[in-house]
């Protein structure tokens, strides 16, 4: 793929050079050069055909995948998400209670939608349980501690520290209310700004 592979016309100019000037009137050289004139005509036709193809493909109802495809893709995704991480949040006399990381995530995201100027991004949750002694079987002794690492995008121009505080506060109340455990540590990172 050396540079000399770039196609050149009989007059020595490259196709690229002609292409670059296709929207402008012909140059002095092009007006007199047979090679350039032929190339210009062809490239102009190519350009028109390209635009036409782009537009017709975009709007051609035939050029869409079958209607059931979205569903098929989502079925696979849905089946796989259920095997995601589960966090053990309580051991009772009757058994264990686990919560999927996904459920915690969505609770946090729903909380975040109440804060204007914040878009949720990634959320990682660790759960730290104090090592329990072999005698303990009930819930009271081993309160799990969440460590939430939440990344967000903020609207350009907002007061970031104030908004992040409001967000943290919102999560701190949403988790005990929605799940029944302490929110633990909430680390919030503003990783991006978005235009309003």
């Amino acid at each position: 793929m050396a540079l000399e592979d770039v196609p050149r016309l009989g007059c020595g100019r490259s196709i690229d050079e002609v292409w670059a000037g296709i929207d402008q009137p012909p140059t002095g050289h092009e007006e007199h050069c047979q090679y350039c004139q032929t190339a210009r005509t062809r490239l102009q036709r190519l350009q028109e055909a390209t635009v036409a193809l782009r537009e017709s493909d975009l709007h051609d109802p035939e050029l869409k995948p079958r209607p059931g495809l979205t569903r098929a893709i989502m079925d696979v995704a849905r089946a796989e998400v259920r095997r995601g991480n589960r966090l053990l949040v309580r051991t009772t006399d009757h058994g264990t209670i686990e919560i999927s990381e996904q459920a915690l995530d969505s609770l946090i995201r729903i909380a975040a939608t109440a804060i204007p100027g914040i878009h949720s991004r990634r959320c990682r949750i660790d759960i730290r349980t104090l090592p329990n002694s072999p005698h303990e079987t009930t819930s009271t002794a081993r309160a799990p501690r969440l460590v939430i690492n939440f990344r967000v995008a903020a609207a350009a121009g907002i007061d970031i520290p104030k908004t992040v505080d409001a967000l943290r506060q919102k999560i701190r109340t949403a988790i005990p209310a929605g799940i029944g455990i302490d929110a633990g540590t909430i680390n919030i990172t503003v990783e991006d700004l978005y235009d309003v």
């Binding site: 998400v81 878009h119 991004r121 990634r122």
Partner: peptide, 11 residues
Amino acid sequence: GSIVARAQDGD
């Protein structure tokens, strides 16, 4: 970007 990030977390 935010939509992608949510999808990354399984949304």
